[in-house]
Every structure is written in C-alpha cells, then in structure tokens.
Design a protein around this nucleic acid. Structure first.
Lengths: 206, 206
DNA sequence: TTGACAAAAATTGTTAACAAAACTTTACTC
DNA sequence: GAGTAAAGTTTTGTTAACAATTTTTGTCAA
C-alpha cells in the first residue's frame, strides 16, 4: 500500500467511490476539504486532480514554514516538559528504524511528522493544524521537484534539533530549524517540472 | 445589513437556503468550508452553529498571530514597493473615513483587513490565506470576549506600523506589530464568557 | 493522414425524494 | 406539578434519479 499518486492524476468520483466503498456524497465532501488544503485541484465541471504546485507555490510554502516554524521551536526550548521530550525522542527512534528498513515512503512520512510533533508539543492546536497542512504540501512538492539523489534531507538533522531543544538552546534550535528547511528547499530543482512540461509542449507543438 | 451573528447561533440548512436562495447542496458545501476554517461548529446530526471559541482557542489564535505576523511585516520592510505602500496608505484612509462615520462593524472589518493587506504585499498567497483565516477568528473572539469600552484597539497603531514600514525600520515594525497584537489581546476578558455561561448554568441548576 | 464536425459516452453538478436522527409536544403516572 | 414515555414534528444525512457539461469516439472531406 501507501502508493503515492502523481500530481495531475485525475481523481474521478466514481473510481473513489468504488475504491473506498462510500457514496458519492462523502467523496465530494473529502475532495472539497482536500482542495481547501491545497493538495487537490478542484476544477468546475472537469473534476478533481492531485495538485501540481508550480515553483511560486513551492516557494510560498517554504517561505511560510521559514516564517513560522523556527520561532515556535525556539519558544518550546523553555517550556517543553518530560512528556514532550519523550514524544520527540520516541519519534526519532521510529525514524531510525524506518531508515534501517529502507521503506522510503514511510521515511518521508515520518520525516514530515517530526515537524508536526515539534509544534504539537507547544500545545497550540491551531498552529499544529497549520503546520500539518504545510508539511503535507511540502511532501507533494518534494515528490514533484525533488532530485532523485538520496533522501530528501540529511538524516541526523532532526536529532541535532532535538538536542538543541533538550539543552534549552533557543538560538541553536531556531538556527538549526532554519538550516534544515533550507536544506530541504535546496534539494529541490524548482525549474525542473515546468521545464519538463513546457518543454514537452514545445516539442510536440512544432 | 452587515449584522453579525452571535456565537452559538444555530445555522439551520433550510433557513440558509431561503435567505440566500440556493439549494441545500451549496449551503452544506459552504458550512463545511466554514467549519474547516474554525468559524462554524459542525455537529453530527445536530446541525451547524456559529463557533464559540473558548479561552484556550482564543489564546492559540493570538499566539499564532504573534508567531507569524511580526516576522513577515519585518521582512516586507526591505522589499515593499510603491504599489504596496500605496495599498496600505489607501487602506488607512479608508479606516479613517469609516471611523469618522462611526460605522462600528465596518471599522472592525477594515481593522482586520489591514493585517491581511500587510501580509498580501509580501506576495505570499499562502501566508495571506492563513492570516486571513486568523483575522476572521480574531473578529469572532473580539466580539465574544471584547470588553465594551471603546473600539478594540488604539486608532493610530496601524498608521505607526505603516510609518515604520515606510522608513524600512524592521526592528520598529516588528515591535509595533507585536505591541499592537498584545493590545488587542489585553483588551479582552478571556474569563468573561465562560463565567457567564457556567455561572448561568449553576444558577439554573439549583 | 489530418482536421473539422457531429454523435455518443462518460463525468460532474443539481434537485428531489427517502431514511435516520434529534428535538418538541402531548399524554400519562406518581 | 414533576417527571417520564411515547407519538409527532422537524432537521440532518444519504441515496438515487435527472440535467448539464465535458470528453471521447466516429465519420467525412480535404
């Protein structure tokens, strides 16, 4: 399972009804919610498609995360309790075992979930929801623009961030989160997809 | 017009269909979107109600805004162009005339919209959407917890913020935005509503 | 073969009827 | 009168049929 759908994939209502064994109403309801989260593109009278963010939208997502995440992580340095620490430690253990097993989609999922859990330990449900949405969109973007070489980011960066948090080193924690997000962004080739698409169009349009 | 609905107000589908002259489908669609934005509370089999945020949720909203807005406003200090400056100036003019006319709901609406426009000039559509959502929820909260005395915030704070932006004074701009948000929050009585409600319940339960 | 056009099929959007759940009223007992 | 139970009403959730739009297929002429 856990097969990802490529951007632009058409999500027909009938197919979704069959695969999930639910009525058309619930499918439409789900598609509407997904479109409000920007991971499905809902076109009037033409159907639903897996969103295909362009370079500008990708830039917006990373800019937003850079504006939001470092500050929150910094603020939890002083407030995190034993329970919070344990949650993050346990998660990193999960990530490590997943990496040993080499299950790529699971690694990506857990990698994103770490960011959500960092915000979650701040206790702010609203910010947690916002970051969860941004992380989901980041996954889409990494899948679309990510260069094939290796995993999306250095493996031990999460551990370093947690270390700074445990030391209560606010400055280090925020700096590491910024670096980490920048690393993910730098691993992308934001010109790639549009090149491919428009390139194909140009060739076929000769 | 422009009559606000009190929190906990029931939004029955039939009523909404009639008032807006649309089918039940579109009403349900709208309610689902509003609930995903946290301004409508959708209860299974019981209907839709105007959201009634509690003190914790109110705190989360202001905390989120304090984490997000100051940094963005700081970043636009260096990048804003003439068009952006003009948009913000024009808006402040709008606010002033509305204040002279004394149309309270309009004043509140414009006051919130200023924050959205500040983010909008940053060019990040995603952050703009996020802030718009937070501003909407802030309006709900101010309506619910706001003490009656005067408007929700000092009238000239927006002007001061714009002034700092025009000077390109990053430190001042971020500080002013923080202060401004804190002023709004301080103008609330987060214990009020719950006291009233639970107080009433206790009295009636004797 | 390619292009335009028309018919057919498939898909989405909407309406209306039906089912299920919650709320209100009524009737009855204590 | 207070409380409870049952019938009735209202409201929401779901299904199914219908309408409108898009996409595909097929045909014919250049």
């Amino acid at each position: 399972m856990e097969q990802r759908l490529a951007p632009k994939t058409k999500l027909s209502e009938a197919d979704l009804c069959e695969t999930f064994n639910v009525g058309r109403m619930k499918v439409r309801r789900a598609l509407l919610l997904l479109s409000s989260q920007g991971i499905v593109d809902l076109q009037s009278n033409r159907g639903a498609y897996v969103a295909c963010p362009d370079a500008k939208e990708a830039k917006d997502v990373f800019e937003a995360r850079l504006h939001i995440e470092p500050g929150i992580v910094g603020s939890i340095c002083g407030t995190i309790d034993d329970r919070g620490r344990q949650i993050l430690r346990d998660h990193i253990t999960l990530e490590k075992t997943a990496r040993l097993k080499g299950h790529r989609p699971e690694i990506i999922r857990l990698s994103g979930e770490f960011h959500v859990k960092m915000i979650a330990v701040s206790g702010n449900d609203l910010l947690t929801r916002i970051i969860r949405e941004l992380v989901t969109r980041t996954s889409l973007i990494v899948g679309l623009f990510g260069s094939g070489n290796g995993t999306s980011c250095r493996e031990d960066e999460h551990e370093e961030i947690l270390h700074a948090i445990e030391l209560g080193d606010k400055a280090a924690a925020t700096a590491l989160v910024k670096e980490h997000l920048n690393h993910i962004q730098e691993g992308l080739e934001l010109s790639k997809a549009t090149e491919v698409v428009s390139g194909l169009k140009n060739i076929l349009a000769v």
